[in-house]
């Protein structure tokens, strides 16, 4: 399985994702430049964290128009696996590949901290190594992670089990106190209806080694590899 990590001007999480996939997951991975227009040959595209184009105007708003994004959109629409982490999630929202938008954190400050996430749907390429309702620990680092959708779209997301991760307390309870940014329904990560595009504010690439305090992110990334290998061995 081959990963492509997209580098926008101002991205800064690309090396972390690359390290996690290359050194820890031992998977082939390349950087893809925002000016490129071809993503063929890749099985999963990762839009990393950072401040693409300084996050000026709105986080992700300008990156969404980078030349490579047309190819990403085509790839995603054709069922290719796309993972947007933090700024990558914001870009996917701006590109309309996932529903909703990001507002500033309700505390009005950047937040860097460990959070607990409850896995709400394990039937996805990105979460299949977890148990339903499992509580995992993944850090966040963002200033605009306050996920917003209107009530109708939220109902749809819930009905289709598109909410994959929700901020919770260590015991798995979804509480206001456990919500670090004010997101609607404590949403930390969502998937599209077709189940191939995932966006999440927490940073799985930052928790792939015990030395750095946790390895739940490794399980998440390993889910993608497992899913792909299963799909390919079935000839799917």
């Amino acid at each position: 399985m081959k990963f492509g990590v997209i580098v926008f001007p101002g991205s800064n999480g690309e090396q972390d994702v690359y390290h996690a996939l290359d050194e820890v997951l031992r998977q082939p991975v390349d950087y893809l430049w925002h000016g490129d227009t071809d993503v063929s040959g890749y099985d999963c595209l990762v839009l990393p964290g950072g401040f693409s184009y300084g996050n000026y105007l709105r986080a992700g708003a300008i990156a969404r128009f980078a030349p490579i994004m047309s190819a990403v959109i085509d790839f995603a629409r054709a069922g290719g696996l796309v993972l947007g982490i933090c700024n990558g999630f914001q870009i996917l929202l701006e590109a309309g590949l996932l529903p909703g938008a990001m507002l500033r954190n309700d505390c009005l400050q950047f937040r860097c901290q460990w959070t607990h996430l409850r896995v709400e749907n394990t039937a996805t390429p990105f979460s299949n190594r977890f148990r339903q309702g499992q509580v995992i620990r993944v850090p966040i680092a963002h200033g605009e992670g306050n996920y917003y959708v209107d009530a109708a779209t939220l109902a749809e997301l819930e009905a289709n089990r598109q909410v994959v991760f929700r901020y919770c307390d260590p015991s798995g309870k979804v509480t206001t106190a456990a919500n670090p940014n004010g997101s609607v329904a404590n949403i930390a990560g969502i998937i599209n209806r077709e189940g191939n595009i995932l966006g999440m504010m927490p940073r799985p690439e930052r928790c792939v080694e015990e030395l750095l305090g946790g390895s739940d992110g490794r399980e998440m990334l390993a889910s993608v590899v497992d899913w792909w290998q299963r799909g390919n061995s079935n000839g799917a």
């Binding site: 507002l103 500033r104 954190n105 309700d106 505390c107 009005l108 306050n146 917003y148 209107d150 004010g182």
Partner: peptide, 10 residues
């Protein structure tokens, strides 16, 4: 209207 505006509220 209806979209939270934490800066404005503060």
């Amino acid at each position: 209207e209806g979209v939270p505006d934490p800066q404005g509220e503060t």
